[in-house]
Design a protein around this nucleic acid. Structure first.
Lengths: 239, 239
DNA sequence: CATTGTGAAGCGTTTCACAGCC
DNA sequence: GGCTGTGAAACGCTTCACAATG
């Protein structure tokens, strides 16, 4: 039987998919859809239906057999589990290209986050406006974090400034860091860190781009038609 | 025994770590370090040493027992396997905040990619400069892609324009897409897609932030000292 | 009777532990 | 002696297949 509380730990893989289900469900709710099957949700989220059911079963059993899930209820469940009952204030360190773009990024609205401050080391930038925010000095980080009750920081500095930024964020009391700088950060165990390295993403893509022909032979035998074809294919010394 | 060619398929988990090893190794090379042990590389990359050895063994056996790996050789091996022997030209669709920031992002240099074009639907933007690039019309996408030999496209459009952008990229002959728009894209099987959804990253962080206390009880029993403590802890109805 | 919820099987990844080798 | 390379064990995630059920 499934758990009915919401205090438990979810499998990591499930946690990383819940945000996608949530986003898809929100879209459906906006379109007036009020029920959805695991199959339907799976299709929209780009995953397999059994996976959806297993994921959702970890939140407790809230579907109706023969019918499906109540979209609204599911949204509330997932929001609650992810800690999105209320918005999280977020602070950005680094007011360069990327930092400013993130500060103005509309994609956070309605998804649980609000950028409430942006700081930089450069005293020339301090005082400058970025959208509705004013760039603050990184020296006031501690005050800003406690005044605004911030627990999530985004690092958008150049690589060589990232370690310092992380250290300052941790010292200021931030407990979660989203790092865009291409460096491996070290942080105390009580601080969560996620890295988004754009070059890494592209490198993974380029690997697959380069090796795609092999994949297809393996994944879609119908494209190479027969064992014989596959052997010919290999004999060509492909790639 | 290990493979000695470089045509084989690597485990997906290995592929996603090679870029990190590569980055760390490049830094080491710059500092004049020419040998490194699996332990040393593991430390710098933030992973476990056995994992490093297994990952590298998939590239063939190129370490020296009792000594370690030759940094330079390893860099060449990984570069080659990831398809980074030469730079990849990259095109960005969407010249908004994020698109422009990505176009000016310095982090791609020396990591195998060069942004060679940026396009937008908005005719007011077309002709405007973004750094050393001029924004082109999305209608010339096909020509641009073939003239510049582009196979990787980045989608940095608003959500509602992303599906169209993807379709146009595919039609133009692009075979890999890095998507920053918060939508689930559908693409033919021969096209690789990776999604970077900033709100999703933050939501995963917020989940862990919210549930951290539980994790620590589970992961670091020494912090809660004893079974008795853990029971007390639970009895408090934490979270 | 369509659809959920879930044991159980299958797979890929991680980690261990040590033989093999320089 | 120190470090790699790798079988084998352990683990977590995915998928299957179907009993449970509104």
């Amino acid at each position: 039987m499934a758990r009915d509380d919401t205090t438990g730990q979810l499998p990591e893989a499930t946690v990383s998919r819940l945000p996608i289900y949530l986003h898809v469900l929100s879209t459906q709710a906006t379109n007036g859809i009020d029920r959805i099957s695991s199959e339907g949700l799976a299709e929209l989220a780009g995953v397999n239906a059994a996976k959806v059911r297993k994921d959702l079963s970890h939140l407790g059993s809230h579907g109706t057999r023969g019918v499906g899930y109540a979209v609204d209820h599911l949204i509330r469940q997932i929001r609650h589990e992810l800690g999105l009952d209320h918005d999280w204030p977020v602070l950005i360190v680094g007011a360069g290209n990327l930092g400013q773009a993130l500060a103005g990024y509309g994609g956070f609205d309605n998804r649980g986050f609000r950028v409430v401050a942006i700081v930089d080391v450069d005293s020339d930038k301090v005082g400058t406006r970025v959208g509705r925010l004013t760039i603050e000095s990184i020296d006031r980080l501690g005050e800003t974090v406690s005044e605004l009750g911030i627990s999530i920081g985004i690092i958008a500095t150049p690589p060589n400034a990232a370690a310092d930024a992380a250290e300052r964020l941790v010292a200021a009391g931030v407990t979660s860091i989203l790092n865009f700088a291409p460096v491996v950060l070290s942080a105390p165990r009580h601080v969560g860190v996620r890295n988004v390295d754009l070059a890494v993403e592209l490198q993974i893509l380029s690997y697959h781009d380069l090796h795609r022909i092999n994949h297809q032979a393996a994944i879609e035998p119908n494209l190479v038609a027969s064992d014989t074809d596959e052997i010919q294919f290999k004999a060509l010394g492909f790639r």
